[in-house]
Design a protein around this nucleic acid. Structure first.
Length: 251
DNA sequence: AAGATTTGCAACCGCATGAAA
DNA sequence: GTTTCATGCGGTTGCAAATCT
């Protein structure tokens, strides 16, 4: 006897969410929280699977999400983290406040991968493409790397330790051709917080109560960006400033 | 202008994991 | 110890928008 489906697939709606559905979901979560995702669609009056609700909330409706393209600083962090962690997008996303694993994964596949290839860098190994003798960054007796660049979840702390050692080794290297990561401007103070498991300021944000009005105020981009696609430059400017502020706070 | 192709991203699917019964 | 269930994660797909021919 296998596992039952999380919902009755015949009676659930699929595909893009409407503004009405978004509003229902947000209103429900802001007033009730999401103790059990399976119950959310029924209680919120949505013909959706609980899984779909969770995804919509975490990837799109959460009030603390940033919108727009990743900044240069964020992109560099993603590349660094990918070199150390591989395709563990949720782990990478946890180090970039306001960004989701889905967003980072998409940005990696559509932008960063191409950029690295253009620079002659293998996006899987983070080594120069013509450097046949190099092994992967995280390859060590204590970590496992699969063909597609996935890292084993076992020995995580050892992997992280190796990664930190690797990053400091890279920083010491003076020859830009030796390792692709040298093109990244290192900021040790920034990298320092990357290995902390907690991101205190996002936790604070989540623990504070939020009204539907507050959500609507903080999510005006939903109208601006989803329906009309305006304000990208202004948004980017604000986000860049915000990200810089967060880094200053952390330092 | 119109059709073909490419790109970017939201959403889905299946699997893994851990907790509860 | 086994089964069931809820949730999270990473890979993949589908489709609208953008770009090319």
């Amino acid at each position: 006897m296998g596992r039952q489906p999380c919902c009755d697939k015949l009676k659930v709606k699929k595909g893009p969410w409407t503004a009405e559905e978004d509003k229902k979901l947000v209103a429900f979560i802001l007033s009730n929280g999401h103790c059990c995702w399976r119950a959310v669609p029924k209680l919120a009056g949505l013909l959706r699977c609980g899984k779909s609700c969770r995804l919509r909330w975490t990837n799109y409706l959460r009030p603390d999400l940033k919108r727009g393209l990743l900044t240069d600083a964020e992109e560099k962090l993603v590349i660094d983290l990918h070199a150390s962690l591989g395709n563990r997008w949720s782990k990478i996303a946890s180090k970039l406040p306001g960004r989701t694993d889905n967003e980072i994964k998409n940005h990696w596949n559509t932008h960063i991968k191409k950029k690295l290839l253009k620079m002659g860098i293998d996006p899987v190994t983070h080594k120069l493409l013509n450097d046949q003798t190099s092994s992967t960054v995280a390859a060590s007796p204590n970590s496992t790397v699969t063909d597609d660049g996935k890292f084993s979840k076992k020995h995580e702390s050892v992997d992280q330790e190796n990664a930190i050692n690797q990053i400091s080794k890279e920083a010491e290297s003076t020859n830009p051709q030796q390792n692709c990561s040298n093109f990244i401007n290192r900021d040790d103070q920034v990298l320092g917080f990357l290995w902390d498991d907690e991101m205190p300021f996002t936790d604070k944000l989540w623990s504070s109560p939020l009204s539907i009005e507050a959500w609507e105020r903080s999510s005006e981009w939903l109208l601006d960006y989803q329906d009309f696609g305006i304000g990208d430059l202004e948004l980017e400017r604000v986000e860049n400033a915000g990200f810089a502020d967060e880094q200053i706070k952390l330092n």
